[in-house]
């Protein structure tokens, strides 16, 4: 039986192919894993964003509640002892804003 002699060039080509295929497969798997990981991260951030949006809305509503005119007037009058300015206390300026 005569063993076929493999040329050096063929070995190199085979090796390159093997490395290329392995690299491609590794890259593909890495890409898939990374996509899933990023997907999870996006989902997590999305959830976080929704939660923050809810917090903002809650705070805005709370702010509205705290700035309710009836409440503000009560504090101004009872706690801060503020009074409505008398007519002569109102100063007029010549400046007129753009309509």
């Amino acid at each position: 039986m005569v063993r076929k002699k493999i040329r050096k060039k063929e070995i190199v080509v085979g090796l390159v192919w093997t490395i290329a295929v392995m690299f491609f497969l590794t890259f593909y798997i890495w890409n898939q894993i990374e996509s899933i990981r990023v997907g999870y991260k996006i989902g997590e951030l999305e959830e976080n964003l929704q939660s923050l949006k809810k917090d903002v809305e809650k705070l805005e509503t709370e702010k509205s509640s705290l700035l309710a005119l009836e409440r503000v007037e009560k504090i101004a009058k009872e706690k801060l002892k503020l009074e409505k300015p008398k007519k002569e206390q109102i100063i007029y300026d010549n400046f007129r804003p753009e309509p």
Binding site: V72, K84, P85, Q89, I90, Y92, D93, N94, F95, P97
Partner: peptide, 27 residues
């Protein structure tokens, strides 16, 4: 009128500058 910062007509060229706190006023 005070809230809308509309001055009396004899002062038609003027506008109120000290009226912002009047949101709280009580007549």
């Amino acid at each position: 009128l005070q809230y809308l910062r509309i001055p009396p007509q004899e002062d038609s060229l003027k506008t109120i500058i000290a009226a912002k706190p009047l949101r709280l006023m009580d007549q």
